[in-house]
Design a protein around this nucleic acid. Structure first.
Length: 726
DNA sequence: GCAAGCCCAGATAGT
DNA sequence: CTGGGCTTGC
């Protein structure tokens, strides 16, 4: 096997995969085959070093990465792979909590609160504390709480900080914790913290896990935060058999508390660390690698390294300039069609990346108009849709009656005549008598609510109690159907009959499908496991990369993925790097992170990379003038081809759109160019010029024009509005 | 208590 | 332009 591995892996990869003991740092650049190293390392540990697969823990950041690792491990190890624990930090921690919750007095059926739930809780705390939600944006508190938790700081630490805001924040923070505590709920950050609490207070439990996971592998180590690092420290124990893989150039989660010093200081922290650098890239052309390197090398805080490739051929990176963001979308379409036509590419070969989800809309419009299949990742998540959340809140309540947030969400949905007044009365009563909201529902006789409300509340409680019992007997799939029938969820929506409500019915049905699917894959799993899965699974995990569709996603989501052709839209100052007027961290650290983000995007491309910039964009309702992203000028000229806007003003663009806003199924084909080499043309912006070159460009023509003093420009004839002079 | 309608603020990234 | 929060009139 060792010989086989030597053939499969390059020398550095081989060394990294076959070093068994001690701390190991693998600095794996983009496209350097790190997943391959990790999976072959697992194979080597089991098949060569004789390590029990049950003693191996592999941690990733996304379920998708975990799934891929699982798949490849199964290929290499067969049935033995099942014993290897592979999961995300969050799912691994959730597993530990579920198994050990008793030790910290947390019920096993705890709820997991997402960021919307967090906001609900924070608003409630702010109301209780009489803090005006208009003066202080609840989101500010949310991000402060999250950042604090990721750095293992509590309300008392925040209170120590100077300033009125921190004073308030500390109060909100502790009120927030109290509500979650009472609700037996954990937020995402708690999932990472609770195991630390368990380990710190119960060394026997810690030793149990430490002895189980003797060999630990960590993917995307550059994105770990303090809590995650502590988790690894607890488990790796004295043997320090901790193998981490990462790339400081791809650290893009600083805002989530990721601490880049975890990777930069790893060697210092663990003496005797063996370091392996993987610098051979198996993904991209030399031009793409060169362009990406010229950008990222401007960062001060990075380990020196440079990717290289054996690939020889390739094209320059192309910068497509447009007058506005719609022009960017048009350019994407035009060049996509060119790639399909000239390079025989399929839709699934393309990815369109952007900095913020809001940028997707305008691109989607263009794709839809042309009938191009696309999938969009991120944005509003399936499980975040209102109707889906309403339904899931019932399930959460059936599971955990302490969960007052879910309880209040459904107590009047479908409408039963329970309004804010009634809810406030119950809440007050519960507070006075030190009861849970749920317990207070039994005492309607003692609460000053109307007779009708009393009956409704009693009935509601009976209903939930019935399902608490049913849950024990009925399989999950049946339970939700019975619940839907009784509540009349779908029935009500169907009766509404609007297109919107029919879509909601579809979403509910989609939820049923996902329950069925989950039950099939995880036989014997209960409601708690399903809900945990719902909380921790994201859109990208379900992304089907085999479907023939263009993929749209943020630069963040794209990490770890690769595509033959990549478009990065919105390469303008303000988006890349992203600047917000209230930006508190306008420091160099955050601008270096933006550069890394751009670098991550560039290195997703295998063969072709298109960068798009525009001189104006729409924000809300106004147009803003943009300058090009400063990162573009870092690329240099050698490996960058610049194509100028082919039309110049909004006016022209609008006129053009007006005539073609209908679906253009029949695209212009085999048209002869009116422009020939040597003919003279006039352009609105560049003036008079001479045509140097004409090349067909999927139903259009790319022409190169010498505009004398204005330079040589590449234009698309169909959009350029050129006037033929001779 | 509730639905309709108005007003205003607002959006970084995601487990 | 959208969606949450608040007022208003039933």
């Amino acid at each position: 096997m060792t010989q086989d591995l030597k053939n499969i892996l390059n020398p550095e990869q081989f060394a990294a995969a076959t070093t068994v003991e001690g701390p190991i740092l693998i600095l794996a650049g983009a496209g350097s085959g790190k997943t391959r190293v990790l999976t072959h390392r697992i194979e080597y540990l089991v098949n060569e070093a004789g390590i029990d697969p049950g003693n191996i823990l592999a941690v990733t950041f996304t379920n998708k990465a975990a799934g891929e690792m699982r798949e490849r491990t199964v290929q290499l190890l067969g049935s033995k792979a099942g014993k290897v624990q592979i999961g995300t930090f969050h799912s691994t921690c959730a597993m530990v909590i579920r198994q050990e919750s008793d030790s910290i007095g947390l019920p096993r059926n705890f709820s997991i609160y997402d960021s919307a739930d967090q906001l609900t809780v924070i608003k409630e705390v702010m109301n209780d504390l009489r803090i005006d939600t208009k003066k202080f944006n609840p989101r500010l508190f949310r991000s402060l709480i999250s950042r604090s938790k990721n750095s293992m700081l509590g309300p008392q630490d925040v209170a120590k900080q100077e300033g009125y805001f921190n004073e308030l924040a500390a109060e909100v923070f502790s009120g927030y914790n109290a509500i979650l505590n009472q609700a037996s709920a954990l937020d995402f950050d708690d999932l990472l913290l609770k195991p630390l609490e368990i380990f710190a207070n119960h060394s026997d439990i810690r030793d149990k896990y430490k002895n189980k996971y003797k060999y630990i592998l960590v993917d995307e180590f550059q994105d770990t935060n303090k809590a995650q690092f502590e988790f690894l420290l607890h488990l790796s124990g004295e043997s320090k058999n901790l193998c981490v893989v990462g790339d400081d150039d791809q650290s893009i989660y600083g805002w989530r508390g990721a601490d880049i010093s975890n990777i930069l200081g790893f060697e210092k922290y663990f003496s005797g660390t063996k370091v392996y650098k993987l610098e051979q890239n198996y993904r991209s052309t030399p031009q793409i690698l060169d362009a990406a390197y010229r950008v990222v090398k401007n960062n001060k805080k990075r380990k020196s390294k440079r990717l290289w490739t054996e690939i020889k051929q390739g094209n320059k990176v192309t910068l497509l300039r447009s007058p506005d963001d719609r022009g960017e979308a048009e350019n994407i379409l035009a060049y996509m069609q060119k790639e399909i036509f000239e390079e025989k590419r399929a839709f699934k070969d393309f990815a369109i990346l952007y900095r913020t989800n809001a940028q997707s809309r305008i691109i989607e419009d263009s794709l839809r108009r042309e009938g191009i299949a696309y999938v969009i990742i991120g944005g509003v998540k399936f499980y975040d849709r209102k109707e889906v959340k309403d339904f899931l809140s019932y399930l959460r309540l059936i599971l955990n009656q302490n969960d007052s947030i879910s309880l209040r969400r459904v107590i009047n949905y479908p409408p039963r005549g329970i309004g804010n007044v009634t809810i406030s009365k119950i809440k007050e009563f519960a507070l006075e008598n030190k009861l849970l909201f749920w317990e207070a529902l039994d005492r309607t006789e003692d609460i000053a609510v109307g007779a009708k409300q009393k009956k409704v509340l009693t009935d509601f409680k009976k209903l939930i109690n019935k399902y608490i019992e049913l849950q024990k007997e009925l399989p999950l799939e049946e339970l939700i159907r019975v619940l839907d029938d009784e509540l009349g969820f779908r029935k009500l929506m169907k009766e509404e009959g609007t297109e919107e409500s029919l879509q909601r019915v579809k979403n509910i049905e989609e939820l049923f499908n996902s329950v069925s699917e989950y039950c099939e894959v995880n036989p014997g799993a209960g409601l708690q496991e399903f809900m945990e899965n719902v909380s921790l699974v994201s859109d990208i995990d379900n992304w089907d990369n085999k479907a023939n569709a263009v993929t749209l996603m943020t630069l963040h989501s794209a990490k770890g993925l690769e595509f033959p052709v990549v478009f990065i839209s919105g390469c303008v100052d303000g988006l890349l790097p992203l600047i917000r007027d209230d930006d508190v961290n306008k420091d160099s650290d955050s601008s270096e992170e933006e550069r890394r983000l751009f670098y991550v995007g560039m290195t997703r491309a295998e063969q072709r990379l298109y960068l798009l910039s525009s001189s104006t964009r729409r924000l809300y309702k106004e147009f803003i003038i943009c300058r090009e992203s400063p990162f573009l000028s870092e690329i240099g000229e050698e490996n960058l081809e610049i194509i100028e806007p082919s039309y110049t003003t909004f006016g022209e663009l609008r006129t053009q759109k007006a005539g073609t806003s209908k679906p253009r199924k029949s695209r212009k084909k085999n048209v002869k160019s009116p422009f020939l080499e040597g003919s003279f043309v006039s352009h609105k912006l560049f003036g008079k010029g001479r045509v140097l070159e004409v090349t067909p460009n999927h139903g259009d023509f790319k022409i190169v024009v010498d505009f004398g003093e204005k330079g040589i420009k590449k234009l698309l004839a169909g959009y350029a509005n050129l006037e033929l002079l001779s």
